[in-house]
Design a protein around this nucleic acid. Structure first.
Length: 423
RNA sequence: GGAGAGAUGGCCGAGUGGUCGAAGGCGCACGCCUGGAAAGUGUGUAUACCUCACAAGGGUAUCGAGGGUUCGAAUCCCUCUCUCUCCGCCA
């Protein structure tokens, strides 16, 4: 959520920058400016009225004490009209605050000035690419055929017991999953992240704080009986650790990592996009989260990008990095890098990580602040990234490493799997 | 699920209708003391919004959350949430 000060002081600039996201903010901003003025004058009136009745109450107390009953009673009658006024003003203020909040929540985060214009993922800027995307032989199989050929994932079994998008991993497939999770976590720990195992269900306040609510409530599984949401990513619980907290500057940066199962309803896609492991309702992911200062957050973004690149190198997967254009940027993000690995058999790039700087968009909503050297409380910056999402990594490993003898396991993973080939 | 107790500032802990944003202690910051340190000692030490120059100063709100009684509530009443103890159930 953007801060009202920003709208108040830089309305034109906000409108202009949101155009990069193809978002027409003009009307909302105008309404906000209006409401803001009304809100402030109402608050002033209310405060003044309250100050007056506080003063009278105090005086009545003094009069009673000095035994001047009649004078006290006289004053008492005077407060009845003030009471009604307070009530009215309070209600008005409440309405205006709600109105302001409802408007504010509709505005996406302002993109960083370096974010390229553009509408779709076609317009993303490819900033780097590395690794060999060499040709596979013509009889190379897509992963959804390899999984049944080697009996490592049973999609139908998952459909039977739950539904489409809930695969059952089996044998070496299950072990490979477990190996990847351990590998990713160990890498993150080595890079200075603290490992957490968060709850997989969160309450409404948490889902709101990281921006899943109210914008994307249809994308989460909801448990109405307890009003809890299944997390779409570990980002939600982990970032919420710091909700309503004031940190000391020397505690920053905070680097957290968590493995979690992720649940996504993801309505609306079809065809090859959802085939096999490409898009699931339940999948595994290791997430990295950082909380840092405004001065450092963009350096941190680069650091996280370098970190994830390192993992992909160790997995020997060809990958490229895309800087998202305005139109492809998520609601809450100011700047995002997508990491994509090449799926040799599908001949397409698969997104395996998305690393974003949210600047103060999340911290404002969740009141995550720190006290700087001068003792001033300031909103912290939050960032997160996948490191990494399992299914598409698995898909790429299966496809890219297929040989007549079987599927080769990259060297870095062998200590974790205990085998070097799936055959 | 049943019964009971409780929720106060960074922490501990007082406070049952007015002088309480809140005693006292601890912690922390700065100063004094000291050759240096400890001890001692002095001062300060919440957040948000409004006014305003995002200064100083001032106003308002906040003692788990929301509502009510009252001229006036941390203190009384109602609802909710959470925590703890005992019982039950249970991986």
């Amino acid at each position: 959520m953007l801060q009202i000060h920003l709208i108040r002081n830089e309305a034109e600039d906000v409108i202009k920058k949101l155009q990069i996201k193809n978002f027409d903010a003009k009307e909302i901003v105008e309404n906000l400016l209006n409401v803001d003025v009304k809100r402030r004058s109402t608050q002033k009136k209310l405060d003044d009225t309250l100050a007056e009745s506080n003063a009278i109450a105090k005086e009545i107390g003094n009069l009673f004490k000095s035994g001047k009953q009649s004078e006290a009673n006289e004053l008492r009658s005077k407060t009845t009209e003030l009471k009604q006024l307070v009530k009215d003003l309070q209600e008005e203020l409440n309405n205006l605050e709600n109105e302001q909040n409802n408007l504010l929540v509709q505005l996406p985060n302002v993109p960083h000035e370096s974010v390229p214009a553009g509408k779709t993922s076609e317009d993303n800027e490819i900033v780097s690419q590395e690794g060999d995307i060499g040709e596979l032989s013509t009889d190379a199989l897509p992963h959804w055929e390899l999984t049944s050929k080697y009996d490592v994932i049973d999609f139908e079994l998952g459909t039977k017991i739950t539904g489409a998008g809930f695969p059952v991993y089996k044998g070496k497939g299950a072990k490979l999953q477990r190996a990847l999770i351990s590998f990713f976590l160990d890498q993150a720990i080595e890079a200075g992240y603290v490992e957490y195992q968060p709850p997989l269900l969160v309450n409404e306040a948490s889902a709101y704080a990281t921006g899943q609510l109210p914008d994307k409530d249809g994308q989460m599984y909801h448990v109405p009986l307890d009003n809890l949401y299944l997390i779409p990513t570990a980002e939600v619980p982990v970032t919420n650790f710091y909700r309503d907290i004031i940190l000391q500057e020397d505690q920053l940066p905070i680097k957290s990592t968590a493995y979690s199962v992720c649940f996504r309803r993801e309505a609306g896609s079809y065809g090859k996009d959802v085939r096999g492991l490409n898009r699931l309702h339940q999948f595994d992911k290791v997430e990295i989260v950082q909380v840092t200062t405004p001065e450092k957050s963009y350096d941190t973004l680069e650091e996280m990008l370098a970190y994830v690149s390192g993992i992909l190198r160790k997995l020997e997967l060809p990958f490229r990095v895309a800087k998202l254009c305005g139109g492809d940027l998520s609601f809450a993000s100011a700047m995002t890098y997508d990491m994509e690995v090449y799926s040799a058999a599908q001949k397409r790039w698969l997104e395996v990580s998305s690393i974003s700087n949210f600047v103060t968009f999340q911290s404002n909503r969740m009141k995550l602040r720190y006290r700087d050297k001068n003792g001033k409380t300031t909103l912290a910056h939050t960032l997160n990234g996948s490191a990494l999402a399992l299914p598409r990594i698995l898909a790429a490993l299966l496809e890219n490493n297929q040989t007549p003898e079987g599927i080769k396991i990259p060297e870095a993973l062998v200590p974790y799997t205990g085998f070097d080939i799936i055959d």
